[in-house]
Write a protein that binds this DNA or RNA. Structure first.
Length: 613
DNA sequence: GCCGTTTTCGGCCCGACTGTTTTCAGTCG
């Protein structure tokens, strides 16, 4: 875990303890916010001095001091004080859905409940019913939540969640009376994992007033064959658990990841999906609202207030400081049909969903021209049947050409990757000849000979320099020794970045999302070296990897170093993962120019040759 | 505990839903 992640967890723990101790909610919020800011920071917080820390929005003098204390000692006195006052088994219960800090505090202070065992015991003997606001229904819900808790909060990888979202949206669009349908939430923002899916559907304004037209849309949603459990059911709002397809992926991505998922009514991995139905005039407001992020929304609403307006999921309204919400009183909204109208009314440029994280998007003067899938003109990391790919050189190239690419590079594994059928030097030399021979068979695209060369544990490369020099493209990637100490990993990767024959550092950390954390190098040092040595850092687009991850890609963009988005193609379908890599780059604020795969052929080929002199 | 095109003190986003309540507290997104 990185230093930033450790800090984020520490402040999150402080906030949770404060809540259980009944401390001021605004102080709690300040710590929660600090935790989020630290977790999203693109630079290593432990490298920042107090003055720099204070420049970060959401970090003031007190929290800055605590950050410094944590970095030097590994904890804080405040945490120790708070932690000593709360039973150790209490904190995990905050994860139980529907059980919040206020209720948990009451259970503890008035009911003597200190952990899951004593909570279950007090439910079993009925003593919990004597506590305030604890009726039969609440207790039954709580009992069910305890059983479901383990299965619900696992976040699902973007590449598994998004196809489900698209599938449900398509189904909803086909339903009578539906005008528009879209998915929102963190899937729309392109986060590497999502907690749940938010599906938004609109009907015409007239239809929306007719319950007999709206209710069947919700009913259809709840009746989909993949629904395993209905969590809430209303006319305009429903929640379900949707079964994930346990298909066999390259990494067996869905196999046995929710060991507790087979308890109760749920079979196999599931994802929660929420549906909201709104009238067409509110679709933009609702889309913005459910896309979030939460912090971005808070900022938007504060901005609306400062401009004499109030913003909710139904629209942007003049603020008349009335008690009842404006949409219930028939107030005409200033904006709401489209997201664009809301940003415009708040005197903001349109902010793309991927950067709605309340980082610096409110300082923008114009909509940034973030990179798009259409900008990508080359795939620089692809495997064939020579190592562990499924396609021949010809098929690989034809597929790339069909996507409008001007260049495809064949980068099979190097000799140390025995499990991936890595090429010996002799086989590599033959393979280069085969690649050259293939050029005549697939005109209209440049086929380059390369290799995905293992970066060995000590930072040396898997082929000698005289062999690497024969290749048009060298992608150097770590595949083994992925549990190295950060300092060792940094030195190892720096060696590869500075190697004069290396073009691209492939999947720099080697992480597999929800599977293994990978290396934790000093990313600022890698980025600085990449810029100095004119080496590109890869965003590996496979949804299991997304490596670089968003915040590191952002740091790369901010430093002015080069990125390369690659699908790491093993089979034809892998080309479709490009969208996840592009979403990650967009979250980083990347424009096309900073990604070498967008460059025209002449420019890209010339750049590759700069490492061959 | 943070922050400032009303403010260095006094604020700090909005609505739906649920269950427990006779008017609201708590949770969630």
């Amino acid at each position: 875990m990185s230093a930033n992640d450790r800090l984020a967890r520490h402040f999150e723990a402080i906030a949770n303890l404060m809540q259980l101790l009944g401390e001021d909610g605004f102080r709690v919020n300040a710590h929660t916010r600090a935790a989020r800011v630290l977790g999203d920071l693109s630079t290593d917080a432990s490298s920042l001095d107090r003055k720099t820390l204070l420049e970060i929005e959401g970090i003031g003098p007190k929290i800055a001091d605590k950050i410094i204390e944590f970095i030097s000692s590994g904890s804080t006195a405040e945490f120790a004080d708070l932690n000593a006052k709360v039973p150790p088994g209490l904190l995990p219960l905050l994860e139980v859905p529907g059980l919040g800090p206020k209720t948990l505090r009451t259970l503890w202070t008035e009911g003597g409940i200190v952990d899951e065992a004593s909570l279950r015991a007090s439910i079993a003997d009925g003593s919990i019913l004597k506590l305030p606001r604890m009726g039969a229904k609440s207790v039954e819900k709580l009992r069910q939540s305890l059983d479901f808790a383990r299965t619900v909060h696992a976040r699902i990888r973007l590449g598994q969640a998004m196809p489900i979202a698209e599938h449900i949206v398509a189904r909803m669009k086909a339903q009578k009376g539906v005008v528009r349908a879209a998915f929102a939430g963190s899937a729309r923002r392109g986060r590497d994992t999502v907690g749940d899916l938010d599906i938004l559907v609109s009907t015409s304004d007239a239809d929306f007033k007719n319950e007999a037209l709206v209710a069947p849309i919700s009913a259809l949603f709840r009746a989909m064959p993949e629904v395993r459990h209905v969590l809430a059911s209303g006319d305009t709002r429903s929640s379900i658990q949707f079964a994930l397809n346990a298909e066999d992926q390259r990494w067996g991505a869905t196999e046995s990841e929710n060991p507790d998922a087979n308890k109760g009514q749920v079979k196999g991995p599931v994802i929660q999906v929420d549906l909201r139905i709104v009238p067409e005039c509110s679709f933009g407001a609702a889309l913005a609202y459910f896309t979030g992020s939460k912090d971005h929304n808070v900022h938007m609403r504060e901005r609306a207030l400062s401009m004499g307006m109030t913003l909710n999921e139904y629209g942007l309204y003049p603020d008349d400081s009335s008690e009842e919400p404006p949409h219930k009183r028939g107030v005409t909204p200033v904006a709401g049909t489209t997201e664009e109208s809301i940003f415009a009314a708040l005197k903001l440029p349109y902010i793309p969903p991927e950067i709605r994280e309340d980082h610096s998007e409110f300082n923008l003067n114009a909509t940034p021209t973030l990179i798009t899938i259409a900008d990508i003109k080359a795939e620089l990391h692809a495997h064939t049947t020579a190592s562990d790919g499924r396609m021949s050189i010809i098929e690989l190239a034809e597929r790339a050409k069909a996507r409008g690419f001007h260049t495809i590079t064949v980068t099979d594994h190097s000799r140390s990757s025995a499990q991936a059928n890595g090429l010996s030097i002799e086989r590599l030399l033959e393979h280069i000849d085969s690649i050259h021979a293939a050029r005549a068979q697939v005109p209209g695209i440049t086929i380059l000979a390369g290799s995905e060369v293992d970066i060995l544990a000590d930072g040396s490369l898997d082929y000698p320099d005289e062999i690497l020099a024969k290749l048009d493209v060298v992608v150097a990637s770590p595949h083994t020794a992925l549990s190295q100490e950060p300092a060792t990993a940094t030195a190892r990767l720096l060696k590869a970045i500075m190697h004069p024959l290396v073009h691209i550092l492939g999947h720099p950390t080697g992480r597999l999302i929800n599977r293994r954390p990978g290396l934790e190098p000093d990313m600022a040092a890698l980025i600085a070296a990449a810029k100095k040595n004119n080496t590109a850092l890869e965003i590996n687009a496979h949804w299991m990897r997304l490596d670089l991850r968003d915040v590191h890609a952002r740091a790369t963009v901010e430093a002015g170093a080069l990125l390369s988005i690659n699908c790491d193609v093993h089979e034809a379908e892998d080309y479709d993962n490009l969208k996840y890599g592009v979403l990650t780059a967009r979250r980083a604020g990347a424009v096309a120019e900073s990604v070498i795969n967008t460059w025209p052929a002449e420019k890209l080929h010339a750049w590759l040759k700069t490492k061959r002199r």
